[in-house]
Design a protein around this nucleic acid. Structure first.
Length: 311
DNA sequence: CGGTTTTGACCCGCGC
DNA sequence: GCGCGGGTCAAAACCG
């Protein structure tokens, strides 16, 4: 377990840069859709339900759960360069993307993922739709759900995000001294996976790739942790993967940078029913917040999510 | 004792 | 067809 490591590490911040080769480029780079910051990302993010301006997020935990934040912080940092955003979404697996190749530049994740056969889950109750590789019939292609990757500047690899993950594999990455770790959501019915690796170019950057959508709510930190462990940035990512519609990002003590914007936002995720998106469990209906134009109002180091202001 | 991590083996897709 | 690399499995080890 890496919990102990997580608790003590210093600042963590998430960055979206223009680099297309950031560790996961080796895979499926042809099906990657890129975001760009600046004026363009406003629309794009909204398209994905990201609404940096929206502050209607419902905090799952208590507003005062920031005791673990001292001396650390999570930051959502968008470089201002026009090409500064490399968060990516892969609407479908490349094995299934061919049919929709014409839309490969149009990150319509919600529609594409709904056609994705569900992935296998670690659960034992309901049989996953995807056949485990060892028993997978020949010719049956591996299905991959929509993915989203981002980079986080952090000293720890595995970022707490409010979900519980079980590591199920680790592989050496070619041309990188750092291994890639594979995690699955511990929810027996949840199919979400994530990969964590360090950038070979900048070892301080952790590249986290989420795949699939959580079909359950954030379970908090069952190990006695706080609801939002803001020294970990992956809250962000967990909100990309799951169908949870509203989120916020803890922002504290952000070291101001001319080329960076800190945003706090709630996120409305693509409305992909869990059962269509591959989940075998159900998700309580979520309100669908109205997207509004995103404005990255400069450095918002003092802006905290609504729930966190309430203290 | 149950859950998680580790790690070698295996499977699969892809490029040559 | 073969080799490579990514992804996953599953048994053993580990841990609380």
């Amino acid at each position: 377990m890496e919990d102990k490591d997580k608790v003590s590490h210093p600042a963590t911040k998430t960055e979206f840069t223009s680099e297309s080769n950031w560790g996961i480029g080796a895979e499926d780079s042809d099906s990657v859709n890129y975001f760009f910051s600046g004026d363009r990302d406003t629309n794009i993010l909204s398209e994905f339900g990201w609404n940096p301006q929206q502050e209607q997020a419902n905090r799952i935990g208590g507003p005062d759960d920031r005791s673990d934040l001292a001396g650390s912080g999570s930051y959502w940092l968008f470089p201002q360069e026009t090409s500064g955003f490399s968060g990516l979404i892969e609407p479908v697996d490349k094995t299934t993307a061919e049919a929709s190749a014409s839309t490969s530049n149009n990150p319509s994740v919600s529609s594409s993922s709904s056609d994705d056969p569900p992935e296998k889950s670690t659960g034992s109750i309901e049989k996953p739709a995807e056949i485990p590789s060892k028993s997978r019939k020949k010719g049956q292609k591996r299905i991959r759900q929509q993915r989203f990757a981002f980079m986080t500047k952090s000293e720890v690899d595995h970022l707490e995000d409010g979900y519980r993950w079980r590591k199920y594999g680790q592989k050496a990455v070619k041309n990188s001294p750092f291994p890639r770790s594979y995690y699955r959501c511990t929810n027996s019915k949840c199919t979400v996976k994530k990969r964590v690796e360090r950038s070979s170019e900048d070892p301080t950057i952790v590249i986290t790739t989420y795949e699939g959508q959580h079909c359950h709510h954030n379970i908090g930190f069952p190990r006695g942790g706080t609801i939002i462990s803001t020294h970990e940035a992956a809250v962000f990512a967990s909100q990309i993967a799951p169908p949870l519609s509203q989120f916020y990002y803890p922002i504290h003590n952000f070291p101001r940078d001319q080329n960076s914007l800190v945003i706090t936002q709630s996120v409305d995720h693509p409305q992909v029913p869990a059962d269509e998106a591959g989940g075998s469990c159900t998700m309580p209906p979520e309100p669908n917040p109205q997207p509004s134009s995103a404005t990255y109002d400069g450095l918002l180091g003092d802006i905290v999510p609504p729930g966190m202001r309430n203290k």
